[in-house]
Structure formats: structure tokens, C-alpha cells
Design a protein around this nucleic acid. Sequence first.
DNA 1: TTAACTGCTTAACAATTAGTTAATATTGTA
DNA 2: TACAATATTAACTAATTGTTAAGCAGTTAA
Lengths: 226, 226
Amino acid sequence: MQKELKKILIADDEPDILEILSYNLQKSGFEIYLANDGNEAIYQAQKISPDLIILDVMMPNKSGIEVCRILRKDTNLKETPIIILTAINDEQTHIFGLESGADDFINKPISPKLLVSRVNSLLRRINKNQNDSKIEFEGICIDPEKFLVTHNNKIITLAKKEFELLYLLASKYGKVFLRDEILIKVWGKDVIVGDRTIDVHVRKIRQKMEIDCITTVKGVGYKFEL
Amino acid sequence: MQKELKKILIADDEPDILEILSYNLQKSGFEIYLANDGNEAIYQAQKISPDLIILDVMMPNKSGIEVCRILRKDTNLKETPIIILTAINDEQTHIFGLESGADDFINKPISPKLLVSRVNSLLRRINKNQNDSKIEFEGICIDPEKFLVTHNNKIITLAKKEFELLYLLASKYGKVFLRDEILIKVWGKDVIVGDRTIDVHVRKIRQKMEIDCITTVKGVGYKFEL
DNA sequence: TTAACTGCTTAACAATTAGTTAATATTGTA
DNA sequence: TACAATATTAACTAATTGTTAAGCAGTTAA
């Protein structure tokens, strides 16, 4: 039962920087994807849905700021934390960066240790903040604050684990969650439960929801889909 | 619940400023916490949940604006009043500061007297908005000023803790309050009471209210709902 | 000062519900 | 088809909450 690594996309046109960053982050247990310019960064980001993105300001084709601005318009990547690499004392970039929706800035030259700690703290922060945003799709509303699911304004009462599971699946529409992934995120890393437990919970959700919103992907996992 | 001092977190990288501010605010009856840069400010804020935060704009690691923006995303600190210290006539900061969710600005050099009065007025404003307002739902009226609950014009007499608990729950209709959250907000952070205490109070409220307005969310907490 | 009262907390037990498992049926796919 | 993966069901148990009564501390009134 393996834990899925967090994915980080790094975009920079200087191979040396890419190497330093990816080496250090890999060592800290992240899965690294690389891009060499702005356009590639956007392409990759959309393709792999990373958990965090690091962008250099100075890149061919599109600057980090531009990339950031574009990604913020993408439904899937709106919330993804973005770190921008700037030259030291570059106030202007700092300001534009904030405007464009960046979450953090790191000055070059980069201290690997600092970088890793920033990445971790950003991921922690985002994680913590995300967990109370409401999710809505065609008649279905999942509200973690009220701990409430409604379907066409009809209230559906879910138990805690059922709710957490549904919320997890719905948090990324269409994404297939592996069984292991579900176990870790809903039950926690250290909890050991049998194989059928997930199925039983899925069954209960399906029953209560009355519509088919959870799809089985045999041999892989489950996904939320209407 | 004991009357605790209001906590203020001050973040600045200049020790002199920290000292002046903390001296003056302490003298005015506040409990002061300090941070030396942006990251520390975030860390401290999340740790101690201050009643008010004062941030310098220019700080290492993260500017006051960035810190402000980040704190505003934190569920726990969304509502905490933030004062930003700026250099005089710094229009740019002012604009970004407003956008980032700051509540007030104070220009350097700082007059301690002015500072204290701003702090007080900000706390008063926030307090007023939160604490004194009457809550009304279909026949139920909860008036903290008169310490009175009525249901269809019939007066219901609640004890202090019962009232506080009901008021807390009713302050966000439908929101589930975790047991820990309830303990902290009604009983205070430092008070340790047994597990059943909340239940017993809920029971008493339910009995007295005669209608079902508190819903149990098992494994999570309670919410106010009609 | 005592007696009566009030509000808060606790402890013991009851009731309920969520979560899990295990056994069996069904499905999808190589 | 045969096999493995998932679905379904009901039974079990572990955890959480509800209820009640009793005790304690502080307050009031005689």
C-alpha cells in the first residue's frame, strides 16, 4: 500500500536551476515534473494537475507572471499553490505577482533548504484552508461547513465517513481516486481497515443519493461523475 | 468563563518598533505576542489566534500585505482585525492592503496614543458586530443584550452557559460547530471540562426550547437548525 | 449562620448509531 | 469461461451521544 507522492511542476529555462530544484524536492519526497518555458508550463500544468507549481519569472514565450495569470483562470488550477522565483529585490515583480494570484515568492539565488520548507508550509496551508469550501454540481451541493448534502434541494443525511468520502471524490470532478488514496485521505495513514470497507461506504452513499454519481473504475478506484 | 486579556500579535523586523508598540499596548491592558518576519507572523497567528494583528509592510520573508492575504484565507483568522503599518504617503501599499483584507492603516512614525485608540476602536467595532446583535428565526428570538430567548413571544429562561451555547450555534445558522470549537468558544481555551458537559447543556436547551432546534452531527458536533 | 436555591459539572448507565467485517452474490474482463 | 474485483447484505462491535440523578460551589434570604 503506497502513498501517492505530491506532484510539483517546475518551470524555468535554466537547466541548472531545474536540476537543483528537482534534486532537492525529489529528495524530500515529491514527484517532479519539468517545463522549459511558459507555454510548456501551462501545457504540463493542465495535463498533470500538480499539487504545487514553481515558476521562474524570466522565461521564453511567457513569463511566470503571465503563466500564473492564465492558470488562475483554469477551473482545475485555480487553487493550486504557485511559487514564483524572482531576482532579489525585484519589487515590481512582487507586486505583479501578487496581483496575478501567486501564493509565495522565493528570491534567487535559492537556498534548497528554504525552498523545501516553503513548499511544505504552502502545501500545509492550502490543505488546511481548502477543507471548508462548498462543492456544487447540477443540483448537488456538498457543504462541509454545514456538513450537509443536498440534491435538488432535498436534504441527504450522510454519516461522517460517508460525507468525507463523497467530499473527497467530488473535490476533483472526474478524477479517479485509487483505493489506497481514499484510505489514506479518509481513514488516515495509520488506520488499517479491510478491503470491503470502502465498497460498503460507497454503497451507502449511492443508496442515499438516489442518483448515480460515483462510478467504479474496476481495478483502479472510484470517481465522482454525473 | 474568566475574562481574559485581548491578545495582540505584532509583526515587525525592527526591534525598536516592536518594543514601543508592545510597551504601550501592554500598558493599555493587552497581552502581546511578537513576530520578527512574515512567516513567523503567520505561524504565530495560526498558533495563538490573536484578537488583533498588527503587521509592518516591510518585513523579511513575507510582506505585511502577503501575510494579510494569507491570513484572510484561514478559516480561523478570516475575521480577525488587521492593522498594517506603512511608511507615510505610501499609496501603493494602501491599495494593495485594502485588497488584501486589512482593516486599518497606521503611518510611521507611530504615535503610541493614536495606535492605542485605533486598536481599541477596531476591537470595539468588531465586537459590536459580532456580540451584540440579536438573532431571529421563525418565532425564535435570541437577544444577547437582554439575555433573553423567546419562542413565539413566550419567554424561555436559559442559564448563562446554556444561553452562550445556544447563541454560538445560532450565530451561524446551519454551521456545524465541532465539540472542541464549542468548548473553546463557550468555556474558554484553558478550561477543562468533561465530555458529557456539552451534551447535558444541549439537553437542557432542547428541553426548555420545546422545539427541535439543535441537531447532532455524530462524530462532528452540533448545529442550529429549524 | 443556616437553609434553600441555582447553575454547573460529573459519573454511571442506557440508547443509539456509525463503522467494520464476513459471508455470499454479482459483475467485468482477460 | 474463469478469475479477480466489486456489490450487497446482515450481523456484530466499538464509539458516540442521551439521560438521569447526585454533588458541589456560590448566592440569597430568613
